[in-house]
Design a protein around this nucleic acid. Structure first.
Length: 588
RNA sequence: GCGCCCGUAGCUCAGUUGGAUAGAGUGUUGGCCUCCGAAGCCAAAGGUCGGUGGUUCAAAUCCACUCGGGCGCGCCA
């Protein structure tokens, strides 16, 4: 309809050009938008306002001229000139009502489109270090990423979701050592726990006990063997937690040997990663790929990437390390890729990882990162350009933190201190539906206050229930119908849609008709929150209608038509909620 | 110090490729169940869109400056 109106305006302007009212050199940018206010009709155009100056005529005059030149169209009831010179278009009622038939016929497919044209998109999100369970901060990225993936699929994109598993690097070694020391303590070996280790985390004890169960004393060493010549830990005089833990990592690797160390390392990695997978799966967040950081090294991709940068002349040596000259590509300073000890940095892995993403043939790569990584964006973009790839294919979306409050106080979250609130705890407390919904209620770049007490104690007031209630109410009405031994004849309803003339009905119908537009925009802009707001408004119109009118009435024709309308409403609510990973219960 | 994000009703937030009288929720106040679910509906009240200047037919939206709040600036990951 929108495109049709644009076309009509184009024809009108063409006529005005021919009779010299307008100059042909003006290339009008025809904008037709849906109106916010029903009194302004269904669609509006500002064309007269934008052309007025160039045409040297008052906007309202020009609007009148355009209206006069508009070809007649059966689908339009009337046009009006309003305000400073807007042209408002009123779509005829039977055309609007057609959307009900369409919704009922298309069912779950209503709103889906093919604008994505099957383009291959990669969406990477969460990618939290497998050093502990996901916490509430990760939940926002998970809910947001999964919703964006659903939206984009509904818009016809071919989306792969990926989790980048940071299974290499120092943090993982600290994890392995933490497990080993708990394991030694389980064997009554007296060793102080490093202050920089994963100290008070229950899962470390669990993994250590499992290790004891499976391997008994295979990895036991005496206190003296483990601790001699290790740099003192932090609380002590001259203590340094970093040197201390690094010493322990090296000692573990030397004493245990590669094979045994790997067993402990993997015991931690596998256990924690399995937990993360389960957690996400239970949260309705599904991944096509779990991509291992370690595999980059095993496939020599890191060296390949560095060599490629070197060959292109973007690498130099300084103080024994290899640096990427990222300042040539807009970064604020150059970055080390190979340390003076010969080890690659995390950034080097990431360059290789992104190189591989591009080589896997995605037309667009989207990274969803926590906002604390924003400083990292320029260097990754720099690397991509330096590798000769198109940086515009990479979008990095930054999700701001969800700040938790409990008892009016900010909850400190840190995997290291062990005082975090896990995603699993949150899900159990407020439920998956409320959690998924709450996380995407706000646009991602907005800081979010997440009041745990409120989410828990007043979960009945959650907007998600308001929307679900509208869905359940429709189901309830249809049940009532059965109890009264009445049938709902959808065909008959479709043929009597013209009976839906109440203002509550036309408003609801108009709202239903905008669903595909909302979906398309939400998908393209990666903004699930706009769908949330739409669903709330839709539910509100339904509840209002429900209170104002009786659906199960004597008159068959009106009854069937109204039931078609509320059935269509239920369908759209269901479609929208399922894209957000929220259930649509039939009763509550 | 430099960079990124945010500032809209008492509170939490929509609205920003410039459009008509700036909108919701929540809270406050007052109404609505002999009637399909009151987890609902209706009404009232609540605003210098942080501030100043600029751009134009039109600015919450764009530009400059400025004031607040958050975050980031490792040969950590």
């Amino acid at each position: 309809m929108k495109h049709k109106i644009e076309d009509l305006i184009r024809q009108a302007i063409h006529i005005l050009v021919e009779n010299d009212t307008l100059d042909a050199s003006m290339a009008p940018d025809i904008q037709v938008t849906r109106t916010k206010d029903a009194s302004h009709g269904d669609f509006a155009s500002n064309i007269a306002l934008t052309l007025a100056k160039a045409a040297g005529r008052p906007p309202r005059d020009l609007a009148q001229a355009i209206c006069d030149a508009l070809p007649d169209d059966a689908e339009l009831d009337k046009t009006e000139i309003a305000g400073p010179g807007f042209i408002n278009f009123f779509v005829s009622a039977d055309i609007s009502q057609n959307v009900i038939k369409m919704i009922l016929a298309q069912g779950e497919d209503f709103g889906r489109s093919s604008i994505g044209a099957g383009k291959k998109i990669q969406l990477e999100f969460v990618s939290a270090n497998p050093t502990g369970p996901l916490h509430v901060g990760h939940g926002r990225g998970a809910a947001y990423g999964a919703s964006v993936a659903s939206l984009m699929r509904a818009a016809g994109f071919d989306v792969d979701c990926e989790y980048y598993v940071n299974d290499a690097g120092r943090q993982m070694n600290i994890l392995a050592v933490s497990i080993w020391i708990r394991y030694l303590q389980e064997h009554d070996i007296d060793i102080p726990f490093p202050s920089n280790g994963y100290k008070s985390d229950a899962y470390i004890f669990d993994i250590a006990r499992k290790l004891k169960q499976d391997h008994d004393g295979a990895f036991v060493f005496k206190t003296e063997e483990v601790m001699h010549d290790i740099h003192p830990d932090e609380p002590a005089e001259d203590g340094d937690k970093e040197l201390h833990i690094d010493g322990l990592i090296e000692r573990a690797q030397n004493l245990l040997g590669e094979a045994a160390y790997l067993i402990i390392f993997n015991a931690g990695l596998d256990s924690i990663l399995a937990d993360i997978r389960d957690d996400l799966e239970d949260f309705g967040v599904h991944y096509e790929n779990w991509y291992s950081e370690k595999s980059l090294g095993q496939r020599d991709l890191i060296n390949t990437a560095v060599e490629q940068l070197q060959a292109a002349g973007h690498i130099y040596e300084h103080k024994g390390a290899l640096w990427f000259k990222s300042t040539d590509f807009g970064d604020e300073k150059d970055r080390v890729v190979i340390r003076d000890n010969g080890q690659a940095t995390y950034f080097a892995s990431d360059i290789a990882y992104h190189m591989d993403k591009f080589q896997r043939g995605y037309e667009r790569v989207i990274n969803i990162w926590g906002a604390d990584h924003h400083g990292y964006v320029p260097r990754v973009k720099a690397a991509i350009r330096a590798l000769g790839e198109d940086e515009n294919k990479l979008d990095i979306l930054l999700v701001q933190f969800a700040i938790l409050y409990r008892g009016g106080e900010r909850v400190q979250m840190s995997t290291r201190s062990g005082s975090f609130v896990t995603l699993r705890e949150l899900r159990e407390e407020v439920g998956n539906d409320a959690a998924r919904f709450f996380y995407v209620m706000r646009k991602c770049e907005q800081h979010m206050d997440f009041d745990l007490d409120l989410a828990k104690s007043q979960s009945n007031d959650n907007p998600v229930y308001y929307i679900q209630y509208a869905h359940a109410r429709v189901c309830s009405v249809l049940n009532q119908l059965k109890e009264k031994n009445l049938q709902h004849d959808i065909e008959k309803g479709n043929s009597h849609l013209a009976q839906l003339t109440e203002s509550h009905e036309t408003e609801l119908i108009t709202k239903l008709a905008t669903y595909p537009d909302v979906l398309e925009k939400a998908a393209i802009n990666a903004e699930p929150h706009s769908l949330v707001h739409y669903l709330r408004e839709l539910a509100n119109l339904f509840h209002t209608y429900y209170n104002a009118h009786q659906f199960i009435v004597e008159d068959d024709a009106i009854r069937d038509a109204r039931l078609n309308l509320i059935r269509a409403t239920r369908q759209v609510i269901h479609n929208g909620l399922s894209l957000l990973g929220v259930s649509s219960p039939e009763s509550m």
